[in-house]
Design a protein around this nucleic acid. Sequence first.
DNA 1: GAAAGTGTATTATGGAGATTAGTACACTTT
DNA 2: AAAGTGTACTAATCTCCATAATACACTTTC
Lengths: 131, 131
Amino acid sequence: MFFHIDTKSNAPLYEQIIQQVKEMCAKGLLIPDERLPSVRELSSHMVINPNTVSKAYQELERQGIIVTVRGRGTFISKETDRTIDPGRLKAIREFLKEAVIENYYAGYSKKELIELLEEVYEEMEGKTDEN
Amino acid sequence: MFFHIDTKSNAPLYEQIIQQVKEMCAKGLLIPDERLPSVRELSSHMVINPNTVSKAYQELERQGIIVTVRGRGTFISKETDRTIDPGRLKAIREFLKEAVIENYYAGYSKKELIELLEEVYEEMEGKTDEN
DNA sequence: GAAAGTGTATTATGGAGATTAGTACACTTT
DNA sequence: AAAGTGTACTAATCTCCATAATACACTTTC
């Protein structure tokens, strides 16, 4: 249920938490109404500051991924309103563009990149939307 | 021939330069042996510090994208050794994974994501490897 | 050879963001 | 009442980004 931090990564700790929660949701490893570790619990387990965990949770709530209830805890949103963020499409294109550029330098073809994309989808274990 | 900086972006200036050079190479807008603006020229044109441009160029050379010649200038590599970086594949997978996750929250299907990838490829104007 | 233009190296400085630390508050459950 | 929840606040530290100013080694041009 907990997360891992990559000290070699240059990504901030709170962003790593955000990324992993979203990934687990997309994979179906976290389901609606499921409870996340409390701020203090997670921070002591990861040996990081509670503020850092709180910052991650607050951003996740801003994105509509989770819901926090005072005194009770934080939970995965019932129906993640899948269209909240208008900049989402732009972000997707950006990620794809970077993938294409790196793919160019790796010497792979477009076909191979698509196959790689299929692979990544497989790893998501079909828990996301099928087809 | 010059680059544009996005002040709204949180990406460092030197990374924006790197990204744009690589993108233009992949698009075929920069060809082997073509000369890049000199450090001083580019820095004064972009109104940024020469050191920042230099940092970008040095990282590009480390990746094998460009070659610098003392007293002459910096040029696009003849044959970009397309396999230099072993971490390249991992990077591609990471970009794809992030795209898939955001795609999930955008409510798009796998088919739609692949179509989006095709679109991004189109925008590269077929200057990269065909098929 | 002198001048102008190239990339590079060095040191110092300021600013922004990430993270930690400590404390306090409001709420809910038991 | 006690323990556990998220939250708010201030302060300090650290790292990275970017700037500034200067100097050096090299190449091309005149």
